[in-house]
Write a protein that binds this DNA or RNA. Structure first.
Length: 595
RNA sequence: GCGCCCGUAGCUCAGCUGGAUAGAGCACUCGCCUUCUAAGCGAGCGGUCACUGGUUCGAAUCCAGUCGGGCGCACCA
C-alpha cells in the first residue's frame, strides 16, 4: 500500500484497509489491562472482575497531571479491599511504564499519572505523521450503519426548518465513516401520500397558467412560484391535451413529473450545503414492490398486528368520530399510548404502515439504523422503534435522533414563517446570505436536543463571540505562519522538539486529545462535540499566539532563532492539522486566510 | 389530560453516559494596543446545577415525584 502521499478523505470511504495510529488512551487501556491480568495471576485481585466502569481520562484540573485512572475506586469493593491499598499496588506497576514519569494517589483514590516529555513529543510527531488520519479509527469495525436524514417531502424547496437535521445528519454520517463504520446516507422520498397528490394538482394549475390562462392557486394547493417552471415544462411537452381532462387522466403523470422536479431542486439545495446522499428511496416504489404487505405478514405471524377498532380519542369533542375496524400494530406492548393503524379505512397504507416497511427494507442491508427527525415527530418514535425491533427480532437497532427547532432571528426579532402562504425562508437564501460554512458550523454549536436561535447578524460577526470565526481565524493564523516562515528563513533547520517549552507542550496535550473527542462524539452520536472541542483548541492556540504580544521572544517566528521557530512552527502546523480534521468532520472548509 | 425534550453564573451555552474545588463566551470591574493579523490580551467578580426525596465510596449527571418552558398527541405526513 503506497504511503507518503496522503490520499484525500472521502466521507463514505471506510472500507479500505488502513493503519491507524494507536491512540495514547488506547495504549494505556491496554497497559492497565495487562497490569490487572498480572495482579489476578499473582492473586492480588480476584479473577474476572468487571472492568467496564474503569475510565482513563484527562483530569479536569491540569495540576492533577496528564491522565487520571479511577480503577482503584471502581475495583476496591468487588475486590473486597479499600481503594488506597489497591491504588498502592497499581502505582508500583504503572511506574514501570516507559511513558510514565510519576504516579500520585489523590482524592478518594484517583491515580494521577504524569507522562514523560518524550511521550508528548512522540504524540506531536504522531499528529504530523498521521496527518488527516489522526483521529481516524476502526471503532466501528466495519459495522454497516444506515443514516437517514433530511427526507423532506418533495413538495417544495428546502426551508430552514430542514436545515439543522440535514447538517447534523450529514456530520454524523461523516463522523461514523471516519470512525470505521460503513455508512449509507439515505433520503426517504415521500412520493406516495396525499401531499404529492396536492402537488400534482398544483402543477396542473401552473400548467394551465403556462398555456395562457389567468389562474389563481386555489386554497389548499401549493402557491409557491417554484412550480411555475414545472407547469411550463408540462405545457411544452403535452400542449393543451390535459387542460380540460378529468383528473384521473393526468394526476399520476403530473405528480410524477412534479416530484422529480422537486427532488432536483432539493438535491441542488442540499448541494449548496455540501450534502450528497448515497441513496434516495421512493415510498411509491416501496409500495409498488409490495414491501408493506411483506412487513404486515411478518408481524401478523407474530400476532403483533390484528384487526381492531381504535378507542375514541380522549379530551376532544369530535362528532365525526366513528368506530372503524383497521389493521393495528400492537405498539402498546412497547410502551406506546395506543395501537397504531397501518392502513386507512380506504385500504391505502398509512404513513406508519409504509414507514415500517421502509425500515424493514433498510434493515436488510444494515447492522444499525439511525433516523434524524425533527422534534415535531417525537410522538411517532415509539411505534417505529417497536416495529423495527419486532421485524428484525431486535437484531438491527434503530436510533431515532430528534433535532429541536431552530428559531430564525433578524435584528433580534423572530422571522415569521408560514408554509401555507408559501412565505418561508428557504435554505438556499440563507446559504447565499451567510455562507455554507457558517450555516454548518452554527448548526453544530448546540447539542441537538436543545432549541436554538439562528441570528443572521451574530453568525457572520467577525469576533470572538462567534465560534465559526474564532476557529477559522486560528487556522488562518497558522497558515500565515507557514508563509511568514518561508519569507523570513527560506529553508528552516531540522525540527528539534527540545526547543519547546511547557506552554507548547500544554498545547500538544490539547491537540492530542482530538481522537478521544472523535471517539466519544461517534459513540454518543453527537457531532456537536467536535465543534466545542475545536473552539477550545482554537482558544488554546490563540492564547499561545498572544504570548508573543507581551514577549517577542515567545513569538512563533523569531528571526534570530531559526531552530526555535522551526519547532514552534511544527507545533503550530500540528494544531492546524487537528483543526482541519475537525472541520472536515463538520463539513466546513478550513480557511488559509481571512478575507 | 398523556408522551417526549429541556431547566447549570445577570444573558447565551458546554459539562467527555457517576468522579476531585461545576467550566467557557457575553455583560460588569481593573490593567494592557507605534501589532509574527488587537478582527484583541491578562486578571477579577459572579452558582442552593429549578425543587424535594432516593440509589452509593461519590450525583449537575442515574431513579421517583413536584414546579416551570418547548414540541407532539388523526386513518395527516
Amino acid at each position: 500500500m503506497p504511503h507518503g502521499k496522503t490520499e484525500r478523505f472521502r466521507p463514505s470511504d471506510t472500507l479500505q484497509v488502513r493503519e491507524f495510529t494507536v491512540t495514547l488512551y488506547a495504549r494505556f487501556a491496554a497497559h492497565l489491562d495487562s497490569i490487572l491480568d498480572g495482579m489476578e495471576e499473582r492473586g492480588q485481585l480476584p479473577a474476572a472482575l468487571d472492568r467496564r466502569a474503569i475510565a482513563i481520562e484527562p483530569p479536569r484540573d491540569a495540576s492533577h497531571g496528564d491522565m487520571a485512572i479511577n480503577a482503584a475506586m471502581v475495583l476496591a469493593k468487588p475486590a473486597k479491599t479499600n481503594p488506597r491499598a489497591l491504588a498502592e499496588l497499581l502505582v508500583a506497576e504503572l511506574e514501570k511504564l516507559d511513558e510514565v514519569e510519576s504516579v500520585a494517589i489523590a482524592g478518594p483514590g484517583f491515580l494521577n499519572l504524569t507522562l514523560t516529555r518524550a511521550t508528548w513529543e512522540a504524540e506531536l510527531n504522531a499528529i504530523q505523521a498521521a496527518g488527516e488520519d489522526f483521529g481516524r479509527s476502526d471503532l466501528g469495525a466495519g459495522l454497516r450503519v444506515n443514516v437517514e436524514y433530511v427526507s423532506a417531502n418533495p413538495t417544495g424547496p428546502m426551508h430552514m426548518g430542514h436545515c439543522r437535521g440535514a447538517v447534523v445528519g450529514d456530520a454524523l454520517a461523516t463522523l461514523l465513516a471516519y470512525t470505521g463504520h460503513q455508512v449509507t446516507r439515505e433520503y426517504y422520498v415521500n412520493d406516495a401520500g396525499g401531499q404529492v397528490q396536492v402537488l400534482g394538482r398544483s402543477a396542473h394549475v401552473r400548467y394551465r397558467e403556462a398555456l395562457g390562462e389567468t389562474v389563481e392557486v386555489p386554497e389548499g394547493l401549493y402557491p409557491g412560484d417554484y412550480l411555475v417552471p414545472v407547469g411550463q415544462a408540462l405545457a411544452k411537452e403535452f400542449g393543451d391535451r390535459y387542460v380540460g381532462a378529468p383528473e384521473a387522466e393526468w394526476l399520476a403523470l403530473f405528480r410524477t413529473r412534479a416530484v422529480a422536479a422537486m427532488m432536483d431542486m432539493i438535491r441542488d439545495d442540499l448541494a449548496l450545503l455540501g450534502i450528497h446522499h448515497d441513496l434516495f428511496s421512493s415510498e411509491a416504489q416501496l409500495q409498488a414492490a409490495g414491501k408493506p404487505e411483506e412487513a404486515e405478514a411478518t408481524l401478523r405471524a407474530r400476532d403483533l398486528i390484528y384487526d381492531g377498532v381504535l378507542e375514541k380519542p380522549k379530551g376532544q369533542a369530535d362528532e365525526e368520530w366513528e368506530p372503524v375496524e383497521l389493521p393495528l400494530f400492537r405498539s402498546t406492548q412497547f410502551g406506546d399510548d395506543q395501537d397504531r393503524p397501518i392502513k386507512k379505512s380506504d385500504g391505502t397504507w398509512t404513513y406508519f404502515g409504509a414507514d415500517m416497511a421502509y425500515h424493514y427494507q433498510k434493515a436488510a442491508t444494515a447492522d444499525q439504523l439511525i433516523d434524524i427527525w425533527g422534534a415535531d415527530h417525537a410522538g411517532t418514535v415509539k411505534r417505529i422503534t417497536a416495529a423495527v425491533a419486532a421485524l428484525t427480532g431486535g437484531k438491527v437497532p434503530l436510533d431515532v435522533k430528534l433535532i429541536q427547532m431552530v428559531r430564525l432571528l433578524r435584528d433580534g426579532e423572530p422571522v415569521k414563517m408560514s408554509k401555507r402562504s408559501g412565505n418561508f425562508v428557504t435554505l438556499a437564501e440563507v446559504v447565499q446570505e451567510v455562507g455554507k460554512d457558517v450555516v454548518r458550523f452554527t448548526m453544530l454549536t448546540r447539542k441537538p436536543d436543545a432549541q436554538m436561535d439562528f441570528d443572521f447578524a451574530k453568525v457572520v460577526e467577525a469576533s470572538k463571540d462567534n465560534p465559526v470565526f474564532y476557529v477559522q481565524y486560528a487556522h488562518a493564523r497558522i497558515s500565515s505562519l507557514g508563509r511568514r516562515a518561508a519569507e523570513t528563513f527560506g529553508e528552516l533547520p531540522a525540527v528539534d522538539l527540545s526547543h519547546l517549552g511547557t506552554d507548547e507542550i500544554a498545547l500538544v496535550k490539547a491537540a492530542a486529545n482530538f481522537p478521544r473527542i472523535v471517539e466519544s462524539a461517534a459513540k454518543n452520536r453527537e457531532p456537536h462535540r467536535v465543534a466545542f472541542y475545536l473552539y477550545d483548541l482554537a482558544a488554546a492556540f490563540h492564547a499561545w499566539w498572544n504570548m508573543g504580544n507581551d514577549d517577542p521572544a515567545k513569538r512563533v517566528i523569531v528571526a534570530e532563532a531559526p531552530e526555535v521557530s522551526a519547532a514552534r512552527l511544527y507545533l503550530g502546523r500540528a494544531v492546524g492539522q487537528i483543526i482541519r480534521n475537525g472541520l472536515m468532520l463538520m463539513g466546513v472548509a478550513a480557511l488559509t486566510e481571512m478575507t
